[in-house]
């Protein structure tokens, strides 16, 4: 398992006692960490049986369901934060899940592998689909069907009515300040519903 550099950053954004929904929560590591550090209340959502079992084992409140079918389980504005960490790129309709996040949460946090990272660009220039630390799969068996760059995600936020509150691009745990869409491999965005007017 590669270290999850995005988890530290996310944890730094979440205040004490927040209501958190973690979409694609995996084995529940982030929620367990947030529960221990910040005493957050909330749920994880996961579809994979093995990961659900692991999350139950961590004492995380995990709800087994398919994100592709939306978040109708959850009320409008039910959470302070809705997190989608490194899952967006594996979804069929990345735009719809963002819209659902804006509906059920006050703020959204999305992390994703940056396709604009220089190694990926170089690989394409050389004529091959990239395989890297952040995108470890071959093109034919990857679960990542909707890859995007940091700039693409900024544009999607504008399209779905999300106002970006914070935007970092990381590489190996460090925030990349210079040409982040080129030198950063992991995009981390924090946003909320754009208020009308």
């Amino acid at each position: 398992m590669t270290p999850r550099f995005d988890y530290d950053l996310i944890a730094s954004w979440i205040p004490e006692g927040a209501r958190v929904l973690d979409l694609g929560c995996g084995d529940g590591e982030l929620l367990a960490r947030l529960a221990a550090l910040r005493r957050v209340k909330g749920y994880g959502v996961e579809i994979d049986p093995g990961r659900v079992l692991a999350a139950v084992g961590r004492g995380v409140n995990v709800i087994q369901m398919d994100l592709e079918s939306g978040l109708s389980m959850f009320e409008d504005d039910a959470f302070d934060f809705v997190i989608l960490s490194q899952t967006l790129q594996a979804m069929r309709r990345s735009d719809l899940i963002l819209a659902e996040m804006l509906r059920v949460g006050n703020e959204g946090i999305v992390t994703f592998p940056n396709f604009g990272y220089w190694k990926h660009r170089l690989s394409i220039l050389r004529g091959r689909m990239p395989v890297s630390e952040s995108l470890p799969y071959a093109w034919y068996d990857t679960p990542n069907i909707h890859l995007c760059t940091v700039k693409d995600f900024e544009a999607l936020c504008a399209t779905v009515g999300a106002q970006i509150l914070d935007e970092r691009v990381l590489h190996e745990g460090r925030v990349i300040e210079t040409l982040p869409n080129l030198f950063g491999s992991l995009g981390v965005f924090r946003f909320r519903r754009r208020t009308p007017g």
């Binding site: 209501r19 209340k41 139950v56 409140n61 709800i63 369901m65 959850f74 009320e75």
Partner: peptide, 15 residues
């Protein structure tokens, strides 16, 4: 599950 979540109860759901 939905009703329990609405009430903020601690709930785990396995399908």
């Amino acid at each position: 599950v939905q009703a329990l979540v609405k009430g903020g109860k601690k709930v785990t759901y396995a399908e």
